[in-house]
Design a protein around this nucleic acid. Structure first.
Lengths: 146, 146
DNA sequence: GTTAAACCTTACCATCATGGGAAGGTCAAG
DNA sequence: CTTGACCTTCCCATGATGGTAAGGTTTAAC
């Protein structure tokens, strides 16, 4: 049977090695909810559907989802992931472009880490001055109220 | 003139030392938008109003706003700030309760810092292996696609 | 005394990444 | 043919913050 360009039945798609959304989710580590979301916002191209409208995923799609997942785990924003995907799929990319994205993200992380470190340091100082007993006197509150 | 319990005109309120929301904002460092929001969600009690419905702030209110601001700057969530405010205003508090909140927040910061540090380390390693030139070969993308 | 600027009010909408749930269609197994 | 486990879309929620629009108030200037 030649199904080129036609929407298959679900059983046909499965027997041809396509995955439905829950299998794609399992295999990529991205929730079905987020898979649909990434399609909505255009991070992933729309995938094919069965006759009944079920999304079907081929290996390449699942590979993209894993790429997204890994990027997300490294803290990249949706936008940055879009850029990374574009570079990944562009055979004529310059690795300099990828590296620039990565370094910018590192700088971003550094900034956020430094902010939180500063908070941490202040809080630690205050907490270490607080007796932490039944009495109300508390340098932490005094600082907050200052 | 005795205005106890009545809603004053704005000019009256101002001459009695009350501040309107933009002055309260300036003096506390909290945007008018967020001042209203904190009132909406019950973090701050509803303040008095003029006859025309304008919010008016006394020193004590502004003091609370500064407390919120400082707490927010130290990374406390709205919820935690609510707890801190409760302790601050409770003369029979135990400093142990305040300290516990602070230590829990420090632990939270530590967790988030560690997560970001881990991302940073991975990215740094990958980036340092990337030549960053005009060629497409890139260990960063290879990792993301792995 | 009127008018214009600069306020104030409420009520929405948006962000970002994620999840929950409802209403309704589809499919596979008993 | 029914049941349960899927799938679909659509709407709502988070948390902290900002934007804007429509409409009322106050103040300062003419």
């Amino acid at each position: 049977m030649n199904n080129k360009g036609k929407n298959p039945a679900l059983s046909t798609a499965k027997s041809e090695g396509f995955a439905n959304i829950s299998v794609a989710s399992e295999r990529s580590g991205v929730s079905a909810k987020m898979i649909r979301h990434y399609e909505d916002i255009g991070l992933m191209a729309k995938v094919d559907r069965t006759m009944a409208g079920y999304r079907i995923y081929r290996e390449a799609d699942i590979h993209i989802l894993r790429f997204i997942r890994r990027s997300r785990d490294l803290g990249f924003s949706t936008n940055e992931i879009g850029n990374l995907l574009g570079l990944w799929q562009n055979r004529r990319r310059a690795s300099a472009d990828v590296k620039r994205l990565a370094l910018r993200h590192i700088a971003d992380l550094d900034k956020r880490i430094a902010e939180m470190q500063a908070m941490r340091t202040t809080l630690q100082t205050l907490a270490s001055c607080c007796r932490g007993d039944q009495r109300p006197d508390c340098p932490i509150l005094e600082d907050l109220a200052s």
